[in-house]
Design a protein around this nucleic acid. Sequence first.
DNA 1: AAGTGGTCTAGACCACTCA
DNA 2: GAGTGGTCTAGACCACTTG
Lengths: 243, 243
Amino acid sequence: MLNSRIMTSRFSTRPLYLQVRDALAERIAGGEWKLGTAIPNESDLARQFGVSPGTMRKALDLLEAEHLLTRRQGRGTFVNDQASEELAVRYSNIRGGGGERVGGDVQLLSIAEGPVSESECLRLRARMHERVHRIRRLRLSEGRPYMLEEVVMPAALFPGLSEQVPSHRIVVLAQQFGVLLGKGEERITIASASPDVAGALQVEPATPILNLDRVVYTFDGRPAEWRLGRCHLSDEYYLAEFK
Amino acid sequence: MLNSRIMTSRFSTRPLYLQVRDALAERIAGGEWKLGTAIPNESDLARQFGVSPGTMRKALDLLEAEHLLTRRQGRGTFVNDQASEELAVRYSNIRGGGGERVGGDVQLLSIAEGPVSESECLRLRARMHERVHRIRRLRLSEGRPYMLEEVVMPAALFPGLSEQVPSHRIVVLAQQFGVLLGKGEERITIASASPDVAGALQVEPATPILNLDRVVYTFDGRPAEWRLGRCHLSDEYYLAEFK
DNA sequence: AAGTGGTCTAGACCACTCA
DNA sequence: GAGTGGTCTAGACCACTTG
């Protein structure tokens, strides 16, 4: 309906296709469309929003590039299930010897809510006195522990997370809480396993390990997770891609 | 002129905007436009190629996403200098403590041409009996050696490379030889410095190091370089990004 | 055959840069 | 004020998928 168009564009110079994208992203995050199902075709959507088909197309193409939608010629436009196998790979760059994603079991070691520390503030761009969830887990591949994780997530985005047994996959958690994920970055260094890390990973103390220091941001650029992974690889490797 | 349009599209079902992109990419690779200068505006180009402005725009936007052009509203469309500081970062993910790109000196240890080995065939998707250049270099940051590199490049793409003292930056080399670079991937593992690697890096034998196993492809997907880097980081870290 | 997204056209108007 | 790329429109036709 014309309503949407007027509401979004009258008082803003922000490009129309971005306003439309944001509005569609909100519908997706809010779960108004069922995962994996087709949404209305682009000319219907264009009419609904009171914009031209070309503008609607530009918004939809953007959302596809941002991994929220999948478009298929002759079939339709579908809402992506972020927990699907294809998209789960997105923030996990560890690959097995054959190039496949490393799955495996996960042990939850601890989970608690508390106020942010100073170092967490820097990484999560949080204000002092904000609250965060802290999770420790151990990831195993075929029974062998290969990564010890310390995860920090803002309570503002994931309220009440510590009261449940949360999924160990950030894409699943984000979907549960209606948070859309966007870019991320990971800093990799070599370190030496401290006694307790070595204990958890079942290696000798001082064994060389990879430190994976990762921040994942939301769709609109707010930090959603800081994860420090201590990683002991055997066959596996870390895969970085240049686009 | 109408000529281009007819030649490119008459006998092909490949989308017009891709044909136009390829034609423009060839002009850029061939050095027909000077680096850093503005090319004709999009309506002139559209007329030249006999396509609509919208189609030309789509081709130009693609080339910008592929790092060959830069477009600036009100100024024009410019041919990117691949050796510029911004683009040099593209295939080099090592960052200093402050997040800046690591520059520094480079020592050329050896360079020679020869037939591909079996392992090189796999990585470079080369046919047996093709020829390659092999380069060994040492990279230093503020006088300290931090990476020993073994580089293999197909002689088909870089003819006569071994007869010169080549640049140590792949983006510069590619530009010299009219090769357009595209995607790449890097596999990261932990290793232990062998005696000769340790000697070159001036560390104790068996010091833990990063192995960076990288393949860079051309614009049209042919392998252009295989590089094995043995890397001893101190302050620096490896930065991987999720898009 | 009907419906979808993908391509292509041919404009208009706006925002920005620079002389 | 002239020239550039950025946005937006309103269609037509094509390629593909499905009933």
